[in-house]
Computed example of a mutant assay.
Amino acid sequence: MSPIAPALRELGAQLAELTARFGRPVDAAALGICDRTGLLPLDPPGLHSPNRACRLFCAADGWMAVNLARDEDCDLIPAWLGCDPGTDPWAMIAAHAGGQTRAALVDGAVLLGLPAAAVGEIMRDSPQAPLIRLGAGGTARGPALRVVDLSALWAGPMCGAILAASGASVSKVESVRRPDPTRISSPEFFRRLNGAKADLGLDLADPDGQARLRDLILDADVLITSARPRALVSLGLDLAQVFAANPGFVWVAVTGYGWTGEAARRVAFGDDAAAAGGVVEWTPNGEPRFLGDALADPVTGLAAAVGALQGLSDGGGVLVDVSLAGSAAGAASVSGLRRAA
């Protein structure tokens, strides 16, 4: 059983009720998208995440997680720690991170775009995503929801898969220059998340591709994204302009730490975000351990889908501000895992 099962059950019950209003009731667990067991090599969780990309380590004043999921993350370690370059980033972390505070390490990670977090730094009572009113709402909709899924990896595509299973018409839009990494790294999981969606590749660095994307969004009921605000602005997706042109739609913004304020600058993946939200087990001697594979992702995917459907029920015109770390923190509270770091 998942260590965050109580949170998943709570969101799943809401999801079944909401999807029944808009089409077919959906059991997300039955779709095979709530975990990746058997679909890629995974080790038992411990100080390392099951995929081995994220590790827990002790800073001067407490525990942290850093995720070296991308090649460029490894290259950032010397600048992050202020040390000479080496061949093993984990050895550099072991040698130099213990003399720095968690706050200093988080601040440095934010500046560099490195996914790192203090264990348990985010607290929330519920995994529910905040809904931010940005449009007038009330736009008439067709017989089937039209969804543009511009997201990648797990949580955002999971939201799109749930909406597709409920009967929505979902178009997965990928950059032809930077396609969804899951397509290559885990093709069967990619199929489960995206197989019921229409595929559309666009050159999002080209003005014509950006114009095509905006046309799709202006005709949609729901947009799902998983990039930070500044990246979407570079695609010509200005929040105020989009809601002015399509006042009744719902924008599901999946981010690491939230859409607004300084938190919007932070990068996160499922394992470091789970640690930030306190989804860890503590040993008798006070050391944290991972509890599973990227546990922030499935709870965020469910929260995103619930938020999207709740926003539509309320008439649209809302941004669903769903974050990996916030969803994990809510799941930790609901599942009885909350503890001060």
Rank of each mutant, 00 (worst) to 15 (best):
M1V: 14
A5L: 15
P6V: 13
A7P: 00
L8C: 08
Q14R: 15
A20V: 13
R21I: 01
D27M: 09
A29W: 09
T37P: 00
P41N: 11
L42T: 07
D43H: 14
D43Y: 12
S49M: 02
N51T: 13
A53E: 10
R55C: 01
F57G: 06
A60C: 00
P78W: 11
T87F: 12
T87P: 05
W90Y: 11
W90C: 06
A94R: 15
Q100Y: 01
R102N: 02
A103N: 00
D107K: 10
V119T: 05
R133A: 15
D149N: 14
S151Y: 01
M158K: 05
S166V: 04
K172M: 06
V173G: 03
E174R: 09
R178W: 11
E188V: 15
R192P: 04
R192S: 05
G195S: 13
A196V: 08
A196Y: 03
K197N: 11
A198N: 11
L200R: 08
A205D: 14
L216D: 02
V222C: 02
L232N: 11
A240W: 00
V242E: 04
N246H: 15
W251K: 07
A253Q: 15
V254A: 07
W259P: 00
A264T: 09
G277E: 04
P284R: 14
A308G: 03
G311V: 02
V318Y: 13
G326N: 06
A331P: 03
A331R: 04
A332K: 06
V334E: 02
G336A: 12
R338A: 15
A341R: 14
